[in-house]
């Protein structure tokens, strides 16, 4: 035995202790948390992602939305999240039971999206906003995501979800934007973000 082992053992012990305290213990406490029943609508909440929304979540991840948008509402009296209309209650661990990984984020260059589906329920709004954020939000510094769309200039054979670009944002008039699959999925995911219901722990 020499000092190397004293060091090694001490070093490993400190980290095992912290991972136990910061990850394993909370996991033990929260693991059994399940969904709540909504008896009126006959569903359990939060709703698991499926279909387009599930795919859209992956698009949200690969485009790095988390670097500017959080998905967590802070409690009343701590910040102004609820007053800003970002949610009717604070977020709780239960909200993330289907989130692998959770996309809570740490930066609000843009607003919180925990309940964006309730705040902006229009898919058209989202398509325009994703294509060129300044159409819907003057002064925004969000990057345009034009690569998620196809632009067409004729009204013939337009799919149902095509959106007419406002003339001042169109290089050629008239222009319609047609969402590609990834835009459709992403918007389906954003519309699914709605946690405005009661849970026992945030009453």
């Amino acid at each position: 035995m020499n000092r190397a082992w004293l060091l090694v053992v001490g070093v490993i012990a400190t980290i095992v202790a912290s991972v136990t305290g910061l990850v394993l213990l909370p996991d033990r406490q929260l693991r059994s948390t399940g969904p709540v029943e909504d008896e009126d609508r006959g569903i359990t909440l939060p709703v698991a992602y499926f279909g387009d929304a599930e795919e859209g979540r992956k698009v949200y991840m690969d485009l790095g939305c988390i670097y500017c948008h959080t998905q967590q509402v802070r409690p009343e009296g701590f910040g102004a999240d609820i007053e800003r209309g970002w949610g009717m209650r604070r977020s709780v661990a239960r909200d993330y039971i289907h989130d692998e990984p959770p996309l809570m984020g740490t930066m609000r260059t843009g607003p919180d999206l925990m309940n964006i589906g309730a705040r902006q329920p229009s898919a058209q709004w989202h398509y325009l906003h994703l294509y060129e954020p300044r159409i819907t939000s003057p002064g925004s510094i969000m990057p345009p995501h034009r690569f998620l769309f196809e632009v067409r200039h004729s009204a013939d054979g337009l799919p149902e979800d095509a959106v007419r670009l406002p003339d001042e944002f169109a290089r050629r008039k008239p222009s319609w934007i047609v969402p590609r699959d990834r835009a459709r999925w992403l918007v389906a995911y954003l519309l699914s973000l709605d946690h405005n219901y009661e849970v026992p722990e945030a009453r």
Binding site: I15, S18, V19, V23, P26, R31, A93, P101
Partner: peptide
């Protein structure tokens, strides 16, 4: 510390060893 951190973080974040919100704790740990 580094290998312990890196490997255990990957385990907690990409396996069911931690779930949901706890993954955020593992992330910031």
């Amino acid at each position: 510390w580094f290998p312990l951190l890196y490997v255990s973080a990957q385990l907690f974040l990409h396996t069911p060893a931690a779930k949901g919100a706890v993954k955020a704790a593992a992330n910031w740990w």
